[in-house]
Design a binder for these strands. Structure first.
Lengths: 202, 202
DNA sequence: ACCTGAACACCGTTCAAGT
DNA sequence: ACCTGAACACCGTTCAAGT
């Protein structure tokens, strides 16, 4: 993970990893079956960093929010994780978080078909957001940003809304935007609990 | 793209692509600067497949829904795209879709800070959902599924909620779940339009 | 039980050279 | 303007052999 944090996902090589560990590259294959295993382990490992929030007494929304924000923080702290998100996350640390999510929603009274939709919706939203933010041209690649900006300006009549209001012009407040979308999802989930109006819709 | 559809992202090789095209691999470098360029082009290209929906007269929700569903369909049809989602999508086809999204939301009366949150929220949700579904052990890997299932059963006391209600036991209806979450987001966005209650919250 | 070296079948990319 | 071949510096992985 030190290697990943320092140099990113595609610079992780069995040979480089072995060197870092002070062995030959082929030695690794005694401990691990394949490089994919290493990546799966690394992806799961980051979730051990941020604890599962203790069940608070502020209600399920606070608990879910804490979980999701922790999830997001971990994805953003290790931006290489974005490149690995295209593999199933079935490690114990991820499962523990998913368990907490399901348990909290169940306890709040969310039932099928909204339970699955809620769990997936929340997960998909964090994953997508983390991916998007980690992917977005960082300060390091200011030239990519400004190139895209110029392209938009040059084609202003083709992309009027984007050129005037797009993410490249409005400096995004990632945290606030994320929180707002999360609120919408939680509102929707809440509206479906215990026959409260929204239940009829499903 | 035929190569990608047939064999997936990590089987795409400059050498194999060249062979498919009936040339030497080094010839490709006259037309393209690097392999990453090829991937960027491929990722943008899939969006040309499904048109931008015509502006209907059923209101902005219908228009946004059509756009998002088309977006999702394209991601699912080309499951290799999941592996490429970790690169910024700045191709013309993606930009055209983002333009439509911004324009539709603006016209509906969504303003900052909800505009950015809405555009990102919707995008992140599709991307996350597409990634999750494309990533999820397919029928082909039924053994991975059942292995995970057995692991959950064996650790039933550690993952009680997952073992009883988790995605591995409840056969997910992806489409319905996706639609439900999308509804929640749209409800939240709608509630914020033109001082309608929700505006005060932001 | 763990480590090593040599080796295989690949990669992306460059570059001088051809037409 | 476009294509080719040879070559460089890498990959992941296997496997016989060591301790």
């Amino acid at each position: 993970m030190a290697l990943l944090d320092a140099e990113g996902a595609d610079r992780l090589t069995m040979r480089r990893l072995a060197e870092r560990l002070g062995t030959g590259s082929t030695t690794l294959y005694w401990h691990v079956k394949t490089k994919d295993d290493v990546l799966d382990l690394a992806l799961d490992a980051i979730f051990a960093e941020v604890g599962i929030p203790p069940k608070s007494d502020e209600g399920w929304r606070a608990d879910v929010t804490a979980l999701i924000n922790g999830w997001r923080a971990v994805l953003l702290r290790h931006s290489w994780s974005a490149a690995l998100l295209s593999r199933p996350m079935l490690g114990p640390n991820v499962l523990a978080r998913t368990e907490f999510l399901y348990a909290t929603l169940l306890e709040a009274g969310v039932v099928e078909p909204r339970l699955t939709a809620a769990a997936y919706g929340l997960s998909n939203y964090v994953i997508g957001s983390g991916l998007m933010q980690a992917t977005w041209p960082a300060d390091a690649e200011r030239d990519v940003r400004s190139a895209a900006r110029e392209y938009l300006d040059a084609n202003r009549e083709r992309y009027p809304a984007l050129a005037a209001h797009g993410p490249l012009v409005v400096e995004g407040d990632w945290d606030a935007g994320f929180a707002l979308g999360l609120t919408w999802l939680l509102d929707g989930i809440e509206a479906g609990i215990a026959g409260a109006g929204g239940a009829a819709r499903a």
